[in-house]
Amino acid sequence: MESLLSIAVGILFATGIYMMLRRNLIKFIFGFMLMGNGINLLIFTVGRLTRGTAPIVPEELEYLDGSVIQDFANPLPQALILTAIVIGFGFVAFSLVLLYRTYTVEKSLDTDMLQESVLPEVTP
């Protein structure tokens, strides 16, 4: 299972980076999303896959020896991934709006437009 997931991570990274290298900025964002998913899957995989129960300890187990808890899935990667997903979500939303604003001003989303400087002489 781990090796399968590793290959999936690799594919997501490769496609993500390929998309990020495209000249269209929207495609860059798609690439970022793919790579973000690859990273989330990476964290999930390195957090050890346990085929067991959800990481919620029932009340009856509370007084048992600590070793029992090994049968539960690792809750930490899930917390990390959740945080990462939320942050990625916010970033994607912000960048999409930013690109939209840029498009309305520049009438293009080609990376070439970023080359020349348009600094105003005085700060408004």
Partner: peptide, 10 residues
């Protein structure tokens, strides 16, 4: 949202 700012921000 000035033009330079948008480019810099991108």
């Amino acid at each position: 949202n000035t033009r330079a700012q948008l480019r810099g921000a991108v």
